[in-house]
Every structure is written in structure tokens, then in C-alpha cells.
Design a protein around this nucleic acid. Sequence first.
DNA 1: AATACCACGCAAGATTCTTCGATCAATCAC
DNA 2: GTGATTGATCGAAGAATCTTGCGTGGTATT
Lengths: 153, 153
Amino acid sequence: MIEIDAIDRRILAILQKDGRITNADLAARVNLSASACHRRVQRLEQDGFIRAYTALLDRRKLARLSTVFVEITLSGQATELLEAFERGVRTIPDLLECHLMAGTADYLLKLAVADTDDFARIHREYLTRLPGVAQMHSSFALRTVAETTALSL
Amino acid sequence: MIEIDAIDRRILAILQKDGRITNADLAARVNLSASACHRRVQRLEQDGFIRAYTALLDRRKLARLSTVFVEITLSGQATELLEAFERGVRTIPDLLECHLMAGTADYLLKLAVADTDDFARIHREYLTRLPGVAQMHSSFALRTVAETTALSL
DNA sequence: AATACCACGCAAGATTCTTCGATCAATCAC
DNA sequence: GTGATTGATCGAAGAATCTTGCGTGGTATT
């Protein structure tokens, strides 16, 4: 595994918060020249530490105010069943996350929906059509207390 | 609420995937001149549609391979209790999300941890010290099937 | 039909990126 | 100790990009 030092971690921490900071400003904040800083960022990108640069949109402005978590138990654990289920899951347009959970053969899905009606539509059009589902349990988030994509460094 | 048109949605969709695309390339992909495109992006930023630009890091490279969901039931529902709990939650360094869930007074936490030992440490140092906790139930994600920050547009 | 209003494209000045060679410090072999 | 090697740094300059002013065209409103 490629090692990174304290300066690299500072660079990553800053880019996690502001992915569009200019190289000159980033260099100043980590006390490096622009060229040295630029080289480090390039290396971090090439080595795969930086997976992507993204714009995070405001869900309120785009009418996706509610977050719903859906726990799903499959009717079996055969590989084909899981694969078919996962293929289906990936086609859900408003899916944010899907995790295979330990313990029982449970999946946890996270969706961004506009409101309860919107969730009802997604439930009807997508969730009920997923193959191999034995049980499904949905939970609405009332309020998001904390939400970040930044890892602690 | 400020309205956006189809071109704005295309711009947002592209920026969600590549937050560092050059304005010239973005303009070409939405069939606009660079200046017109730049003006739209500026407007989308000022109007708050774009909340932030971020770099998404590779959790594998940074030894945060596991995702853990923690369901927490509080011992009561008094406002002070919730506020104290939420203040405490926000200090957990590896916390990715915290949602107040509908139904019972339950919180759902999502954490990025290195492994079970790391989670044990976080559990000991942070989770057990959260005020007002009546019950706690942790679930490990075995595998992440899908994970995106991009909303469907 | 006249007017106002946007959004557009073009172009140019300002900013920023990106790469080059030279320099410096640390490490290692001898 | 001394010289060589490695790796990272810096400054500078050319290339790329951003950003803004201005004139134009299309559309809606009166």
C-alpha cells in the first residue's frame, strides 16, 4: 500500500471540503509552493486516493427532501438470487446506497425521495418488482442531524 | 422557488459526476458557449442548487473499509435530551450520517470504520458516552452494492 | 408594433494551471 | 568522512482556462 504523509493528509482533508479550491490557495494552506502541491495532488489522484470530484446538490432545492431507509430480507441466499436482486436494485433511479448487511441476508437501501407520495410511487414501480424479496421494512428520516462525505484524517 | 430548465438539469447532472470538468468542456456537452454555460453555473451556485464541491476519497486506500449502521433509542424525548445527544453525536470523528427517524425516538448513525477493532474503539470512546441512550444496535455492512451522491435528474 | 427583458455568443484581459530545469536535503555505500 | 543517489522542493514561463464587458437576437408583454 502506498504511504502518504501528514501534508498529503492535509491536502486530502481540504479537498474533501472544497474540491474546487485553486491549486495556489491549496498550496498556501499546506505551506508548499504551487508546483510541489500540484505534484502531490496529481500523485494522490493517480494512486487512487481521490476517487472523484463531485458537486453536492441541495436536496431541498431539487425536491428530494426526504431520506428513506429500506431494510429488505431475501427469500433465500443463493448467489443467483442475490445477483438478480442487486441488478434490480441498481436500476432504481433515486437510490443513493445499497449495502449487504451482516447477520441475516438483509440489504439496507437508502433513497432520496420528494415526499411520502413519491416514495409510494417508487415503492410501487421499483421496490415491489425486485426479485426474491421476502420482507421489506421502510423507515423515514424526519431530520438529518449530520451528513458528510468527508472521512476523518 | 427558483426554477431551472432542462439545460440547468443537464449541467447539474454532469457536475454531480465530475465536479472538476472545465467550463469549456461542460459548455460543449450542453451545447452552449463557454460564457453562457459559465453564467448558468454561477447562477446555480448563487441560488444554492450546488451546495459544495468535494473530492470523494477512496475508503480502501485510507483504511476505512467497513460501514457500520447504529440504531439508537433514547431514554426519553425531551428536547434537551435530543439536543444533548445530537451535540454529542456531532463530535464523533468517523461519523458520516445521523438521522432522526420517524416512529420511535430513534436515531440512525452511519460510520466509516477500519475494522471490528476500530469500531470497538469508537464504540468505547464515543458511542457509550453519548447521553440519554437507552438502547443501541449495531449492524455491519458486508459489502456496498451501490453508493452515490448523485441525485437523479 | 414597440418595448423590455433575458439569454446568448464573441472576444480580450486576468487568472490559473502545468511542466521544465535547477537546487537542496537526506540517505546510503564505500 | 565523502561522494553518489534519490526524492522533493522551488521559481519561472508557456499553455490553458476563467471571467467579464459588450453587442445581438429571440421572446414575451403591453
